[in-house]
Amino acid sequence: MPHAGVHLTGRERSFSPDEIIVSKTDPQGRLTYVNDIFLEVAGYGEAELIGKPHSIIRHPAMPRTIFRRLWETVRAGQEIFAYVNNRAKNGDHYWVLAHVTPNMAPDGTIAGYHSNRRVPRRAVLGIIEPLYGRLAAAERAAGGGEAGMTAAALLLDGILDKEGVGYDEFVLGL
């Protein structure tokens, strides 16, 4: 369900399978670098993005529990792959398969994060979109916020347990 003030067009954007959207953030998730493909697909100028939270492109239909899992993983110093629906500046949306990794400083602390995003296969979206719809519904049914993310995480973990796979194995196996 859209948030107040968030304009959505219902139109999907895409980019070429041989292109990669790249961004870097500081440890708090504020953008420090975006490549030209990012700017083109998201419809922003570089000055509009640098220093802003990466969540500026968050689509309101995305289950928050996916972002919680992503942030918990990278803050623990591990990489993660995740399917993400993003929102362009004009309200269009675009799907990506994101690979997010922490950038380590010489002293072993996390200096920031690096994300490469590719075009997902259409067949995979036929699995991900209904799953994300179920997760978002679980979040809303539990009242949103922390309770909603926890309810959706339990639902996702139950699905993964039934399939006998972990999150990474599930995502990379699609």
Rank of each mutant, 00 (worst) to 15 (best):
T65A: 03
R118I: 10
N116M: 12
A47F: 13
Y83I: 08
I57P: 11
P102T: 00
W71N: 01
H54K: 09
I66Q: 01
L70S: 07
R118S: 11
H114A: 08
A98S: 15
I66E: 02
E46D: 06
T109V: 06
D107F: 03
G51P: 03
A111D: 08
A61T: 00
W71T: 02
S55Y: 09
Q78Y: 12
E48F: 14
T109S: 15
E72M: 13
N103L: 14
A105S: 14
H54V: 12
I57D: 10
G91E: 03
K89Y: 07
G43M: 03
A82S: 10
T73W: 07
G112E: 03
A111L: 05
M62N: 02
Y113K: 00
N103D: 11
G51V: 01
R64T: 04
V41P: 03
R118P: 04
V74T: 07
I56P: 05
V84N: 08
T101M: 14
Y94M: 08
T101Y: 08
H59C: 02
P106C: 01
P53I: 06
L97N: 13
M104F: 15
E79H: 12
A61H: 14
S55A: 12
V84E: 14
V96S: 03
G51L: 03
L39Q: 04
N90I: 07
R58F: 11
G43Y: 02
R69K: 13
N86G: 04
D92R: 15
W95S: 12
A42P: 12
L97G: 13
N85M: 14
H59R: 06
F67N: 06
Y94T: 09
A42F: 02
H54E: 13
G108Q: 06
E46H: 00
N103V: 15
V74M: 05
L49E: 10
R75H: 13
R117F: 07
